[in-house]
Design a protein around this nucleic acid. Structure first.
Lengths: 336, 336
DNA sequence: CTGAAAGCGCTTACAG
DNA sequence: CTGAAAGCGCTTACAG
């Protein structure tokens, strides 16, 4: 407890309680068949001394560390500007706290990091399982994980054509609803700010196209611009789009939508009168843009929570068939 | 490597290379005095087999895990809406990657979590060191850490009156500059949206007061409102402030400033004509608000990087005097 | 420069 | 229900 005290071990507790180390270990691990007397005696010593088992020794002996890794292989730039990841992490930590798991976080700041981290994660017995955000279409890290003997779950769709445990939201359907909403409003010159190199971006683009087709709306490649989910890229994309004179734009993330709104205003146009905007995410800030942003709500925290649930199941029953969960989305109408 | 293969151990490598486990261990740990031949032979086997040492076993034997913990004891709500933390985490992971340390993340979602996490972190030998964001004035967790025998560094000032390793930015001076800027602009009815229960908030408030005093400006408690660093709270605070008819407001975080701008616009007032706004942080989104936000730039990523540097030093030389680093800030003029 | 041996602090069959 | 013992896979004085 205090600074100087030499740390107590199982052995010390065993001696103090007059039992074997095995018994103390069983008490700590809540093994059911222990004489109540003995259990009480051991517990008393433990609480009196403030003994805490050495987690590393427990891990080595039990072959489980209770650590799970969260790997976010996105470009750092994207991560930085998108509160999405904060919500995801929040959902994940809620569950890891509940399961008494420890979360380790792995971000790549360079190609080198990717190699280094893969190296330190695979075959080192450090983590019991992995959660991977698989937004990038090119995802060499995820490719590697498949070949490893480690439970993992993927957040977002993955094109790894293997049955994997995964959680995702109904991206295609969300984009469809958003686009349909704009069409229903009477808009005719629809545009999209999408995100390439990203599976969620692809799915949302597909939903946009499907809605256009279903409603016999013209598709004009001039009115398609790519961003990278960042605020800045949404701003730049909208500036580019302006010359194509859209009267509505579906932006596939709220941060990009906020940037797009800014570009529209700066061009002296009115929202939604001149250009209607619909986003995707429903971040808290979406309700406070000018005007408030109509958007597709996706349950980001829940995404994280379900990921941990799936992983937890996998870790305790490796024979379990990997489950794919798709969470529902909803259109949140604000401005229009 | 592949799914079925039973994992190799030091012993296996030793046998394959015809040396002792000690020698293999020395090669792995880059012990300098090894016969080149022997080293080469061992390394060949290691790379041929793809052997990776078991990190847990290494940790138990060496009494170091290479894991450091990042503890963010802020209210979850605050964390979620503030990209600040993303930048901080980014800075931290850049350095942990460089030092080949593993980062574990601890967020509190309830009072119970706080107890649980403290319990699992202290005296369990899991982490080699801790980084704590000490923004809350009431910080029982930080108080506890002090009594533990574990290296740690605090991000943000702490009122724990002990010489601690810490990194911070010049909050007071930043607020002073921001306020001075508004005064120099000719504004006379200054207001502040501050953040209570938070040491950074306190420091910034102090800088505001000092500038007011230096320039003989009236201080009106009517023109002081508290938020919690979230966008929503900035919005609400500004609405409240409106009746006091300020002509300028220093908002002690960018997210709150963005919320405040929104409230001003919604009230039909112009920025900066009717009310000038200065923020604090210089998040990427500050450059894209309407109008672009003048703000105090603080090097958030660097805060995280320095924290890891300090901790790294502490872990390798526990006798080292804990250092206090204060990073400079700068006024970024945009709109006015 | 290298090896034999002890040790890190636990867990978990195996007996009884 | 409980204990003795082996084992988890490494590191590191200690000799030589």
């Amino acid at each position: 407890m205090s600074k100087q005290a030499k740390k107590l071990t199982l052995d010390d507790i065993a001696k103090l309680a007059g039992v074997s180390r095995a018994t103390v270990s069983r008490v700590i691990n809540k093994y059911p068949h222990i004489t109540p007397d003995v259990r009480a005696r051991v517990q008393k010593i433990i609480s009196e001394t403030g003994y805490q088992p050495n987690k590393i020794a427990q891990s080595l002996a039990s072959q489980r560390t209770g650590i799970i890794g969260l790997v976010i292989p996105s470009a750092t730039q994207t991560i930085l500007s998108d509160p999405y990841f904060l919500h995801l992490i929040s959902g994940i930590t809620q569950k890891t706290n509940a399961y008494a798991l420890t979360l380790s976080l792995f971000l790549f700041h360079s190609m080198d990091d990717e190699v280094q981290i893969a190296h330190s994660l695979f075959n080192t017995n450090l983590v019991d399982g992995l959660i991977i955000t698989a937004d990038r279409k090119e995802n060499p890290f995820a490719q590697q994980v498949i070949t490893q003997d480690i439970p993992f779950v993927v957040i977002g769709r993955s094109d790894l054509n293997t049955p994997l445990a995964s959680v995702n939201v109904a991206n295609e359907q969300g984009a469809y609803l958003a686009t349909e909403h704009l069409i229903t409003l009477g808009r005719r010159r629809l545009a999209i700010i999408m995100c390439d190199h990203n599976t969620a971006g692809d799915d949302r683009y597909a939903g946009y196209r499907r809605a256009l087709a279903d409603y016999d709306m013209a598709f004009d490649p001039q009115r398609v611009v790519c961003g990278d989910f960042s605020l800045e890229s949404g701003y730049a994309a909208m500036q580019q789009l302006l010359s194509a004179k859209p009267d509505a734009v579906f932006v596939s993330s709220d941060m990009m939508a906020i940037g797009a709104q800014q570009a529209i205003r700066q061009a002296g146009l009115r929202i939604p009168d001149d250009i209607a905007v619909v986003g995707f995410d429903d971040l808290p800030q979406a309700a406070l843009t000018d005007p408030p942003l109509t958007t597709i709500q996706q349950p980001i925290e829940e995404l994280g929570m379900v990921a941990v649930d799936l992983l937890h199941d996998l870790m305790h029953d490796s024979a379990a068939a990997p489950r794919q969960v798709v969470l529902p989305i909803a259109l949140i109408r604000r401005t229009t």
